[in-house]
Amino acid sequence: MSAPISAVPLEQAVWAALADVHDPEIPVISVVDLGVVRRVEVAPGRVRVELLPTFVGCPAVDLMRSAVEERLQGFAPDVEATVTFAEPWTSERITPEGRRRLRESGFGPPPPERPELSALDPAGSDTQPDRLLPLLPVGECPYCGSRATTLENGFGPTLCRAIYHCTACRQPFEQFKQV
C-alpha cells in the first residue's frame, strides 16, 4: 500500500495496485480479474481509470469507483475513475486467475466462451418470431467441473449471480451470470 517506486513504469504500477481492489459483493476476486477495468491512462500528473459495470444496475459500482480512487491516492495529484458503457462488460472478460478464484470459493465461473446470444447478435435475426430467445447459458459446477447442470433460477442473491444444480455431483451452486 505505498506510492509507486520510480523505477516501475507508472501504468504498470497502477495495474498492480488495482489488483488490491476487490469486488465488494464477491471479495475473492479483484476488479482486474473480474475484467471491470477497461483502461488505465497515465499522463504527467494524472491517472484515469475506466470501469465497465458488470450489470447496469450494479449497486457496487460506486463503491468500486471510490475504492479504486482511494487505492490510487498518491500515484498522481489527479486521480479519477469513471464508469463507461463504451463496450459491454461480458463474462468472457473474467481472467483465468479470476475463474480459478471463483471456483475455489464455490462460485461457478461463467464458461469462458461467449454464450450463444443468437437473439442479440447483429445479424438482424432478433426480429424473427422464433429467435427472440437465446440458447440457455451454460453452467459449470465449481465442485466437480461438470457441465451437466441445470439452471434453477436465472436470478440470485445479487444481479450478477444465477442458481444452478449439478446433476453429476448433485450440488446446488451459484454461478457468476454468463452475459
Binding site: 458503457f85 446470444l117 440457455l136 452475459v179
Partner: peptide, 22 residues
C-alpha cells in the same frame, strides 16, 4: 452512440428476463 452503448448492455440482461418469463 451513448444510447446504443447502453442498449447493448441492457439487451444482455433483458435476455434473462425474457427467458424467465417465457
Amino acid at each position: 452512440a451513448p444510447l446504443a452503448e447502453v442498449v447493448a448492455k441492457i439487451r444482455r440482461e433483458e435476455t434473462y428476463h425474457l427467458m424467465h418469463m417465457d
